[in-house]
């Protein structure tokens, strides 16, 4: 497994630097989002890095190599999901470094700190987006599934905006009020467990579907 993760990070090392640049760009672009800035900056970068890793695999005919080595297909699929978590952590670290640097520089640009809620919501969003995309990738390969990648990418942003707008417009409705009150009343540890648990559950279901497809795939 460590060899697979080593390979994943080596393959996208140049794109990691590009990811750092994108996060800086998003900090500029999302000044009005305040504490939601972290989510808006890290979510697309982690997703794009995961996609780059898939593209590199296809470009190098990686599946031929990986399936000729003494590796189970389970390990190959699992490595992609673990890589996703690593990429999310790397993107978060990049944001944190930029946050410290921008605040230390004392310039007019503002970078907002990372909150626990922000971190967990961003992870949930990244987990959800990739959980939708990865099964298609493992079934069809990158080339045939890349359109879907962009659909998921755009749908995620449009979906988050649509849900936010809907909730804002229907604040008065009892079920919306009940739901918001439920989350507001949740103690922080419970909220953390809920968000992490939900993210992991989504990833686990997606992993099962991806594994089902990949074990049946031919190269």
């Amino acid at each position: 497994m460590l060899s697979l993760l080593y390979k994943e990070l080596l393959l996208i090392r140049r794109q990691l630097l590009l990811g750092l640049a994108f996060i800086l760009l998003f900090i500029f672009a999302f000044q009005s989002l305040e504490e939601k800035m972290f989510i808006a900056a890290v979510m697309p970068v982690a997703y794009l890095l995961a996609m780059t890793s898939c593209a590199c695999e296809e470009k190098n005919r990686g599946d031929i190599l990986l399936n000729s080595l003494p590796l189970s297909r389970k390990a190959v699929v699992l490595a992609k999901y673990i890589t996703l978590v690593l990429l999310f952590l790397v993107a978060s670290l990049f944001y944190y470094i930029l946050y410290l640097a921008i605040n230390a520089a004392g310039i007019s640009l503002r970078a907002y700190p990372i909150t626990i809620e922000g971190l967990l919501i961003a992870f949930l969003a990244v987990a959800f987006m990739n959980s939708v995309y990865f099964p298609f990738y493992f079934k069809l390969g990158y080339i045939k599934s890349r359109m879907l990648f962009f659909v998921v990418f755009l749908a995620a942003f449009a979906g988050i905006a649509a849900i936010s707008n809907y909730l804002a417009a229907h604040q008065g409705e009892p079920w919306v009020r009940q739901m918001l009150n439920f989350f507001a009343a949740l103690p922080q540890p419970a909220a953390i467990v809920l968000l992490v648990g939900f993210s992991l559950l989504i990833l686990l279901i997606s992993y099962g579907i991806s594994l089902y497809f990949y074990t049946r795939r031919e190269f």
Partner: peptide, 12 residues
């Protein structure tokens, strides 16, 4: 195994 085309990662 040795295949007709390279299957190792070109960027490494």
């Amino acid at each position: 195994f040795v295949y007709d085309e390279n299957c190792f990662y070109e960027e490494l």
